[in-house]
Design a protein around this nucleic acid. Sequence first.
DNA 1: TTATCATTTAACCTTACATTAACAAAAATG
DNA 2: CATTTTTGTTAATGTAAGGTTAAATGATAA
Lengths: 234, 234
Amino acid sequence: MEEQNKKILLVEDDPNFGTVLRDYLMMNDYDVVHAKNGMEGFEKFKKDDYDLCILDVMMPYKDGFTLAKEIREKNTDVPIVFLTAKAMKEDVLKGYKVGADDYLNKPFDSEVLLMKIKAIMQRKATETIADSKQFEFEIGRFHLNSKLRFLRFDDEEPVKLSPKENELLRLLALHENDLMPRELALTKIWRDDNYFTSRSMDVYIAKLRKYLKPDPKVEILNIHGEGFRLVVNS
Amino acid sequence: MEEQNKKILLVEDDPNFGTVLRDYLMMNDYDVVHAKNGMEGFEKFKKDDYDLCILDVMMPYKDGFTLAKEIREKNTDVPIVFLTAKAMKEDVLKGYKVGADDYLNKPFDSEVLLMKIKAIMQRKATETIADSKQFEFEIGRFHLNSKLRFLRFDDEEPVKLSPKENELLRLLALHENDLMPRELALTKIWRDDNYFTSRSMDVYIAKLRKYLKPDPKVEILNIHGEGFRLVVNS
DNA sequence: TTATCATTTAACCTTACATTAACAAAAATG
DNA sequence: CATTTTTGTTAATGTAAGGTTAAATGATAA
């Protein structure tokens, strides 16, 4: 069985450092795409699927955090590692908020980076639920296209979904007829599990119920204290 | 419904720092068990299940790495975070080798620690591999789905069960036709065995009997002073 | 900037749940 | 058989979770 190399998107504006890092990673059997700024980074990200993103925080035009947020909108799962020169606490916290998987202060040791990458890849490997890349669903008489973020009822004009609506419905669909734990949605979509995110989620459940009303066979049931269940009655 | 706090094993030999850290974590809604050295840490680890281990690296008798290796032998999944005073590269690499999930250099910012803990817990939450617990039972003409918390009689509309109803019936079903000791249910479900929890349990037995009435062959018998017995007559 | 859309927070209401009380009935005990 | 202990059952109470709508905040693009 041919083992496919892992693909890394490296976004680093310093040309010297970026090239050195790229070469070093490639020597260690990673496929690396090197973007020289945030804009380019996002373009490249959209064009391909990556196993990991390494983002410099300080970049002209578009900093690493902004880029991370954009990436997160497209893909909630891909691991992100930030590179930063200054070890500012605010930065670190900001990073975790956008869902960083790790954090490295420059200058860092390349072996350490390699270890971190390995650890992250391993983590992701265990998660491998078949859900990672399913984007289209039939839900009763509805069709959900989660990539283009729309929901269509029969042949009617599709309804556009907001990012949160979309992710939530997708997560429910992935667990169709089964329990979708509150905690799962909160950690995966909201990246934080507290009173307010929980209430926010309830608001989105209400929105989804409204969208799903046209088909009486489709409903979102609550399991008190546990989560929700998207059921399609036959 | 009482949300179960996450359990943290903190192994730190410095009594001042350890206590401060423990209190800080407890203030943030974690259940913390504080061990003062590696030996004690391993003892405590074996006695309970933890969601996270925070290990100081430099400790007398048994250092953090050795402890981590022992822990990994017992449990391949539990996240481990190391605390270390010196930012030695060798240490960091060694840490990752024994399967660390993260690394913190003392002195560190408590908010950063909290963020890291959150991030780690989130990762684990995603893994949600349905463990091999038994969740479905046939009880006479009833079907109990203990994961989705419903009880169905023949093909009729399922009845929703409350968490306590559900767990109690599940426990009875696991002991079908056999004695289910009062004490077992009280310690497992109510986590306390006293007059009031006992009366509460009786109330739930009454509720279950009502649910089970439709099938005359199914009944919950009392064994005076001992417990209950879910019997299915043929 | 304004206008627009997404998301969060607030407010208010309803439902779900667990506990406790109260009283009745069985079972055990001396 | 009288008394105590345990169990059966229903109802009342307090609290937490969820449902829903609207307003406030934030973010984005024209």
